[in-house]
Nucleic acid binder design. Structure first.
Lengths: 194, 194
DNA sequence: GCCAAAGTACACAGGTCTGTGTAACTAAAA
DNA sequence: TTTTAGTTACACAGACCTGTGTACTTTGGC
């Protein structure tokens, strides 16, 4: 974990493969046999590293819970850049919505731990927006952060259904209007086109 | 079908129960045995009315595809009222997100017919916004309709995860800003509170 | 070379699921 | 009363799932 070029452990390989298949095909749709077969290991080995499928699911969601990289750019560029990044990811053919929202939709309100991590993730994203808005000195960073997060999640849901990266651009346009309405000056007006 | 007080047919009862359970617990989580047991009929009867579970799923989604009631209210009130209705539904304990988005998340890109009806539904909602925006004479009703739909889907996704009806109010606030930015005058400023 | 840890092969238990087959039953229409 | 359409009870096939047990083999460190 310290050394960056350390050889990938078996546990890493299992988690990485589970991540890809769970995300792409759905958690319920993928059995442990499929995962172990994909790696070319025995099912026994998988169960030697993860005590149950539930544990693997939990590890999958933790693995997806990554913080955005710190950036030196001005806050307003960071905020709007979020939607450019979204648009890029929408274009990728292996994009299939938000793993946390999907997991909640798939596993339902039954599994409380899944919902818990999903809430934590969404809130961490909202706080990321809020911190940058605070830096910009807007009047109500909490409320505006929530609204920006709505645009993010809305565009993700729309793209999941429509496969249309333009949803990210539409969200960006709306975000720009909300920001300007809050008194934020936007320097580079690369308007309709990304 | 013509007579409104016609006795509910067996097919109706099956569809109604399937609808409730599929939506609340998830499509993959509910088996045909569970549905027939809930109604108190044999599994055979269910299969006499629907040739397969897939057919039942398709009927479920068609059944969910309802158009909003026509309204006499001014367009701007209809648009903002959408978010009030959302807030009310978020408060209900049997609300569990958008059935179409959930179905796509659950069944994946595999099932093309599911995705097809989901796209049709989302587009029909967007067009509903667009028609009212056109009536209001805004400059670009297409783009604004897409943005409003983003707010709707975003608040639904957020509420699915957080169980927080305030998401609908946040979306309404953002919608108000977008509308005013497009030159729409909003008469009753029942601001932060619903 | 020796040993311990890790992985493999493979069967299997016990559960769930979709979908079918069949014979008996019920109720209403003719 | 007889026919007929719908329903029931129930077993079952065949598939897939999670998880375990066990004996064998590989592999890296000493």
């Amino acid at each position: 974990m310290a050394s960056p070029h350390q050889k990938q452990t078996m546990k890493d390989r299992i988690l990485q493969t589970a991540d890809r298949l769970f995300y792409l095909k759905g958690i319920r749709a993928i059995g442990v046999d499929t995962i172990s077969a994909e790696i070319g290991i025995s099912k026994r080995t998988l169960y030697n590293h993860f005590p149950s499928k539930d544990a693997l699911i939990a590890a999958y969601l933790e693995h997806r819970f990554v913080q955005p990289k710190p950036s030196d750019k001005p806050p307003v560029e960071q905020i709007l850049g979020t939607f450019d990044a979204l648009e890029r990811r929408f274009g990728a053919k292996d994009f299939r919505g938000c793993p946390f929202v999907n997991a909640v939709a798939e596993l339902g309100g039954e599994d409380k731990s899944v919902k818990k991590v999903a809430i934590a993730f969404k809130e961490s994203r909202r706080l990321w927006f809020r911190d940058r808005l605070t830096e910009l000195g807007v009047a109500d960073p909490e409320a505006l952060a929530t609204q920006l997060q709505l645009l993010v999640d809305g565009s993700i849901a729309q793209d999941l259904v429509r496969d249309d990266p333009a949803m990210a651009r539409a969200a960006k346009e709306a975000a720009r209007v909300l920001l300007e309405n809050a008194g934020v000056k936007i320097s580079s007006p690369d308007g309709a086109k990304a």
